[in-house]
């Protein structure tokens, strides 16, 4: 932003020296807490996420490239509010929250409410985000993230995050976040809602994929045509969900 002269801030605040913000942990209730200085690479290598938060675990290795992942943070990515940011759709699919802190104390903001346009957030000028939270799952968490990139380290042509909590066969909560197919991250609520209250069936998956595609607002650009991107949303949604049925069958 600064290099391209889109932004010329008068002051830059380096938060790197603030102690104890590099953590990520999973509490007893299953909620995931990511500190503002936790790097993408920590999440990529996390054994906690790998076993207990599959949607985040699937996305971590697909954010940017290994060099950027060593430096960049999940919280920074959310605050950057780039419609092509991968973490935003993951957190949206998890009904995620951020904790903002400023002179007036702390407040919690839903990730869905954090962004109000490309590169614009609802944070006050004197607030920083100290933590991002994926709330406790309502059942066993499952999910995935699929991204089409032209090259490793490229921003998504299309990215789809799906997270599904289940008790037995029944879907108790679902979320679908879309990357790169609109002016900001899209929460495909209708598609997610359709999955809740029953088992994952191929019919339900087909319908959810179609609704997710409808929720997308892609534009034709040098990454691909609008119709192609919409089609991919459907394919990715369906592939992630079908994969969940398959792994459930394999586990059984």
């Amino acid at each position: 932003m600064i290099k391209l002269r889109f932004a010329s801030p008068e002051m830059l605040v380096d938060i790197n020296e603030i102690p104890d913000l590099g953590y990520h942990r999973i509490d007893a209730d299953g909620s995931v807490h990511v500190g503002a200085l936790c790097r993408h690479a920590d999440l990529e290598r996390s054994s906690l996420l790998a076993t207990r938060q599959p949607t985040m675990a699937a996305a971590a290795p697909l954010v940017a490239d290994p060099i950027v992942r060593n430096r960049g943070t999940l919280v920074g990515s959310l605050c950057h509010a780039d419609p092509q940011g991968d973490w935003a759709s993951v957190m949206v699919s998890l009904d995620g929250l951020v904790v903002a802190q400023g002179p007036r104390g702390r407040r919690t903001i839903a990730v869905k409410e954090l962004v109000h346009g490309p590169f614009q957030t609802t944070l006050a000028y004197d607030e920083v985000v100290v933590e991002a939270i994926a709330p406790a799952p309502k059942g066993a968490p499952a999910g995935g993230y699929l991204k089409l990139e032209r090259r490793v380290g490229d921003f998504a042509t299309v990215g789809v995050a799906v997270s599904v909590d289940r008790t037995g066969d029944e879907v108790t909560r679902a979320g679908i976040g879309l990357t790169g197919v609109g002016g900001s991250t899209i929460s495909a609520d209708d598609a997610a809602q359709l999955l809740v209250g029953g088992p994952l069936t191929s019919d339900a998956i087909g319908e959810a994929a179609a609704l997710a595609a409808q929720a997308a607002q892609p534009r034709t650009d040098h990454r691909g045509s609008a119709s192609y991107k919409r089609h991919l949303v459907s394919v990715f949604t369906s592939r992630i969900l079908t994969g969940l049925i398959r792994s459930q069958e394999e586990a059984a």
Binding site: T157, T220, G224, Y228, K229
Partner: peptide, 23 residues
């Protein structure tokens, strides 16, 4: 690009010229 391959598969037609930029 994958979208050009997909388009070709859908239409059975060649996909020629510079890729579209913005419409």
């Amino acid at each position: 690009f994958p979208d050009r391959v997909y388009e070709a598969l859908q239409t059975g037609q060649d996909v020629s010229g510079a890729p579209p930029v913005r419409t």
